[in-house]
């Protein structure tokens, strides 16, 4: 906490409102409990599960039987 004190003292501060006016991204990722959908390597899901993080493994196969062009068309036409 010494560090914080150091910063407070050494740096010209901006008012709180000024900081709050900056468009801030959703804080959800850092605040909410992490719950993961793992699309790809099973090991990543296993590692998360071993730490008791909630994770759903997708049984992923190349979409459109591996046709990249069709897969990209689908991505443009799909909500998710």
């Amino acid at each position: 906490m010494l560090l914080a004190l150091f910063i407070t003292m050494s740096k010209p501060y901006k008012s709180k409102t000024e900081v709050d006016n900056i468009q801030v991204s959703s804080q959800r990722m850092l605040k909410d409990k992490l719950q993961v959908i793992n699309i790809g390597l099973q090991k990543f899901a296993d590692d998360l599960a071993s730490r008791e993080v909630e994770v759903v493994q997708v049984d992923w196969k190349p979409p459109a039987r591996g046709n990249v062009r069709l897969a990209n068309l689908l991505a443009m036409m799909s909500d998710y």
Binding site: V36, I37, N38, G40, F44, E54, V56, V58, D59
Partner: peptide
């Protein structure tokens, strides 16, 4: 689940997708 959509049916509260395809 074969898709992200189906996975979200399983856990609608998921907040991060980890993609390694």
């Amino acid at each position: 689940p074969a898709t992200l959509r189906a996975a979200l049916d399983d856990n609608p509260n998921a907040n991060l997708a980890l993609i390694s395809v």
